[in-house]
């Protein structure tokens, strides 16, 4: 047994692949790193540009407009509390981390989901990869991600991306597959091209399900952001890690609360977008 185990070394093989990629695809990872970090600093800059009070009011108005008055009140009080606790900058950099990884996740995930819904063969390949991405413990790919992208926010975004991408693909795929056959047939029978079929019939009908996927992606991204703090991704994750490593219960709790507030805010907003897309337009 031991001999066989020496013959085929699963972990060793993985390490070898990682090392090889690290050396030979350096330029590729550097390119990604540059793009992602530019995007990150851009959003962080924008979020910190207006005075804090203006930002809080902006979020409140957005919540009122998209969701409800209750959510708006919660938003105002919640973000006020974050500011009061002195976690505003950290929260905003976490926010931009989430925005960056979610954007990338959706840019990759939704088209991939559409492709999966159209071709069973693609779905058969993609599905186990998604399972792998979701269940592999985050720390396991945190390390290679640091090797590829070095410490900082970029590997954090990539790790978050890996963790939060699956629901976007899954629910887009599901949403389109669940479009009633008669609606597809109706679209076809009036002479739709495949493109018209997708944009005029399938995507609008599947939108509510796709939005549920977006919501899940955001929630998973937020939960991953804390772990990303361990590799110096910054933001609230760093605060949490500091609280844990220095046994600072107060710091840990405050930054934990800030994450919860941010999570509830994003959840209510995206859910409201999902249900309203079902009713109107």
């Amino acid at each position: 047994m031991e001999n066989i185990r020496n013959l085929i070394d699963v972990g060793g093989a993985f390490e070898m692949i990682v090392r090889w990629l690290q050396v030979n695809l350096r330029f590729f990872f550097d390119a990604i790193r540059t793009v992602v970090s530019a995007f990150l600093s851009g959003t962080t800059f924008l979020l910190n540009l207006p005075p804090v009070l203006v930002m809080i009011l902006l979020f409140t108005v957005l919540a009122w407009y998209v969701a409800s008055r209750g959510v708006a009140i919660f938003t105002f009080l919640g973000f006020g509390l974050i500011w009061y606790m002195g976690l505003w900058r950290a929260t905003m950099s976490t926010f931009s981390l989430v925005v960056a990884s979610v954007m990338i996740a959706l840019i990759i995930g939704i088209p991939l989901g559409i492709w999966c819904s159209k071709k069973d063969a693609v779905w058969d390949v993609v599905r186990p990869i998604l399972d792998f991405m979701q269940t592999l413990p985050a720390f396991v790919y945190l390390i290679p991600s640091v090797l590829f992208f070095r410490l900082g926010a970029v590997p954090g975004v990539i790790a978050t991306l890996i963790f939060s991408l699956p629901p976007a693909v899954r629910l887009t795929n599901l949403g389109i597959r669940q479009v009633p056959k008669e609606i597809k047939e109706a679209a076809l029978s009036f002479g739709s091209t495949p493109r018209q079929m997708l944009f005029k019939a399938e995507l609008p009908v599947a939108l509510a399900t796709i939005m549920a996927g977006v919501n899940q992606t955001i929630m998973l991204a937020l939960s991953m952001v804390v772990i990303a703090g361990m590799i110096g991704a910054g933001g609230l994750g760093n605060e949490v890690v500091r609280g844990v490593t220095q046994l600072r219960i107060d710091v840990g709790f405050e930054s934990g609360i800030a994450i919860v507030i941010l999570a509830i805010f994003l959840d209510r907003i995206t859910q409201a977008l999902g249900t309203s897309s079902q009713k109107q337009t």
Partner: peptide, 9 residues
């Protein structure tokens, strides 16, 4: 169509 096949949105 039998079940109308209307676009719900």
């Amino acid at each position: 169509f039998q079940n109308f096949g209307l676009l719900p949105q």
